[in-house]
């Protein structure tokens, strides 16, 4: 330890300089010394002790009472030294956790990755941004052999790692559903059984499942307590809530889900979202669904992907770049 060997003479020099002339320069040298001594893990109590012993050397006539006072300072500084070392060790642990989380987030992205299908006649845009590292929202697209496009959007109540772990399970449950074409209500009933059996009772999942048949232009959908989306009627330039009743996944084993059906005309849109979108908080409270509609209207002439990207940017700005909940927004737009 080079520094420790020369620490005493260095500190003595600092002390002498400052006692001779109380200059700012001497104080600055003191600041530099402290940076070095922290770097070399010298504890505050050692500095106090060094100060005391140098004082005795330099001023043999220094009153006993002054010297005794340093014992109290030393005792007090021990606590600070310990707190500092604990802080250092916690900081190190936090660093480790952070890098572990980053790896986990990458793994999750690979696990849950889904491709947005490109098909003629339907323009699809999707964005999903986690509030923390890991995402508790999930969306998934499937294109079957009849060119039907299925879309699932799900949200675990809760966020962070527990929610993300739960989502991975949903993804695999969906992958292992029977190959033959299933209807949205049947899929929710299936997933409900899986969630009910495998997930902690305190954890709930909401899901909206929709399927668009380009042959008949019919949109079939069912919801398990999920945040209602919007249907945009291009002819009337009107938005209405895409209401669908259904219990959350994992509550009751034998839940049945009602299936709804509607025709999608050219220019119409289906807007799906997680509650992270409507629960965007501003200083005035949650944003209104009308605010969201205003934003959709503002960008309505862009492509579906550009609309969702722009809305995310607007809402992110509105919340001063602090997401409180995972944010997922999907738009299906039938080409004119």
């Amino acid at each position: 330890m080079e520094f420790r060997e020369m620490m005493e003479s260095k500190y003595r020099e600092l002390l002498e300089n400052y006692i001779r002339e109380q200059s700012e320069q001497a104080l600055y040298a003191g600041q530099k010394f402290s940076r070095k001594s922290i770097e070399h893990k010298v504890s505050p109590e050692e500095i106090v002790s060094l100060h005391k012993s140098l004082l005795i050397e330099m001023y043999p006539e220094v009153p006993e009472s002054i010297l005794h006072s340093f014992d109290i300072l030393l005792e007090v500084m021990i606590g600070y030294g310990l707190a500092y070392r604990e802080h250092q060790s916690l900081r190190h642990q936090q660093e480790e956790l952070r890098s572990e989380m980053e790896i986990a987030a990458n793994v999750q992205q690979t696990l849950l990755g889904t491709k947005v299908p490109v098909i003629q006649g339907l323009d699809i845009g999707a964005i999903s941004v986690p509030a923390k590292h890991m995402n508790g929202d999930y969306f998934h697209f499937v294109q079957d052999e009849n060119n039907c496009i299925s879309v699932a959007i799900a949200d675990v109540i809760g966020k962070g790692i527990p929610a993300a772990l739960c989502m991975s399970m949903i993804k695999y449950a969906m992958d292992s559903l029977p190959e033959n074409r299933m209807e949205p209500s049947g899929i929710l009933e299936n997933l409900n059984r899986v969630v009910e059996q495998n997930v902690d009772p305190s954890m709930f999942i909401t899901m909206f499942y929709g399927m668009f048949d380009p042959e008949s232009d019919q949109f079939y959908y069912a919801s398990a307590g999920h945040e209602p989306g919007f249907y945009y009627n291009a002819e009337k330039k009107e938005y209405r809530d895409l209401n669908a009743r259904g219990l959350l996944l994992g509550v009751e084993k034998r839940t049945k889900y009602r299936q709804y059906q509607m025709e999608i005309h050219p220019g119409d849109m289906i807007v799906l979202m997680s509650d992270g979108v409507t629960e965007c908080r501003t200083e005035e409270g949650f944003i209104e669904r009308e605010t969201l509609i205003d934003y959709i209207d503002k960008y309505i002439d862009l492509s579906a992907q550009e609309i969702v990207n722009n809305i995310f940017k607007e809402l992110e700005k509105l919340q001063h770049f602090q997401l409180r909940d995972d944010f997922t927004l999907i738009i299906l737009k039938r080409d004119v």
Partner: peptide, 20 residues
């Protein structure tokens, strides 16, 4: 564990003793 006993303001705790 660091931070377990100190977070409640109970002093250095056992990790502190170990360090000392």
């Amino acid at each position: 564990e660091d931070g377990f006993s100190t977070s409640g303001g109970l002093g250095a705790g056992l990790p502190g003793v170990k360090r000392l």
